[in-house]
Amino acid sequence: MRYSPTLIDHFLNPRNAGLMRDPDGVGEEQDAGCGDLARFFLKSARGVVSDVRFQAYGCGPTIAAASAASELITGRALGDVTHLEATEVERAVDGLPEDRKHAADVVARALRAAARACLGGAPEGG
C-alpha cells in the first residue's frame, strides 16, 4: 500500500467531516491543477480553535489530510493556524507520496484562510 496506515484510517473514518452552522470563519481552497477542493469551517473561543468541520472533494489523500488537519488544529491558537504549513499537515498523515503532496498543500491553504477569516483578516494574497 502506497499510503500510511494513519492516512488510510483518516480516509476510511474521516473526523469532523460535514457542514457547520454559524461558523466564525470559513476558508476554501482548490488545487489549480487537479481541482481537489477543501473547505474548513472554524469556531473559536478566546482566540483558540474550539470546533472544526470540513468538506472535501478529491483523491483519498486530500480527504485524509483534511480529516487529520482538523484534529491537528483543534485547541490551537488561531494566530498559529494562520501560519500552518503543508509539511505539518503531511506529517499528520505520516507522509504522502510525491505525486500526492498537493493534498497537504490545499488543506493547509484552506485552513490558513479559515483562521484568517475568524480573525477578520483579508484573504491570502490580497
Partner: peptide, 25 residues
C-alpha cells in the same frame, strides 16, 4: 480514485476512469 482506494481496502481491484496527479486533472 477515492472509490478505487476505498474498494482496494476491501480487497476489490477495479480501475479509475480519471487520474489525479500533482499538477493536473
Amino acid at each position: 480514485e477515492s472509490v478505487v482506494l476505498g474498494l482496494d481496502l476491501k480487497g476489490i481491484g477495479v480501475s479509475a476512469g480519471s487520474a489525479c496527479t500533482s499538477g493536473s486533472v
